[in-house]
Amino acid sequence: MYIRTGAIVAATLVLGACSTPFNNPAETSQTRQIPEVVAAMAARDQDLQSARLVPEDSCYWYLHAGPVETTLVPLRSSRGNPICAAPAV
C-alpha cells in the first residue's frame, strides 16, 4: 500500500517538474481579444486580457498569476462553467 502511494507521489512530482511555465509577457501581449459575448459571460476576477481560445479543446483559457507560478486556467462563467466555443458544423 505504501509503495503504491509512494510511486504515485513520485510520478506526480516528476511530471510536475516537466511542465512549462506560462509567464512569458510577450506571449500574453500577442493574444487576440476575446469576443464581447465571451467577456460578458465571464465571471469577475479573471484576466480577460490574457484570455485565448485553445484549439485542442475549443475552450477559452486565461493566465492566472498565483503567488508561486503563473498557469493557464479555464475561463469560467459566473455559474462556474467553462466557456467553450460551439463546434463547427
Score class of each variant (00 low, 15 high):
Y62H: 15
A85V: 05
P25H: 01
A11N: 05
A51P: 10
D45W: 03
Q46K: 08
S50M: 08
R44G: 10
L72H: 06
T71V: 13
G66N: 15
W61V: 06
Y2W: 07
P67M: 15
C18V: 06
P74S: 01
A39Y: 03
L75P: 01
I34Y: 01
A10L: 15
G16K: 09
A17L: 11
P55I: 00
E69V: 04
V9S: 04
Q33P: 12
L63F: 02
S29E: 11
L13S: 08
P25F: 00
T28H: 10
R32Q: 09
L53G: 03
A88M: 08
A88Q: 09
E56M: 06
N81S: 07
S29G: 07
A86D: 12
T70D: 11
C84E: 04
A43W: 02
V54Q: 09
S78H: 07
L48S: 06
N81T: 02
V89E: 10
S78G: 10
Y2P: 06
A42Q: 02
A39S: 12
P35T: 12
D57I: 05
L53R: 06
I3D: 12
T12G: 08
H64L: 14
A65L: 08
N81E: 08
A86L: 13
Q49D: 12
R4D: 12
Q46M: 05
E36M: 08
P82A: 03
A26N: 14
T31W: 07
C18L: 14
I34N: 04
A65T: 10
T28S: 13
L75A: 02
P82I: 00
H64Y: 14
A11I: 14
S19K: 06
Q46S: 04
Q46W: 02
P21Y: 05
L63R: 15
V9R: 02
M41W: 02
L53A: 04
P67D: 15
N23T: 02
V14H: 04
A85D: 07
G80V: 00
A65F: 04
P74V: 00
A85S: 05
V68D: 09
D47G: 03
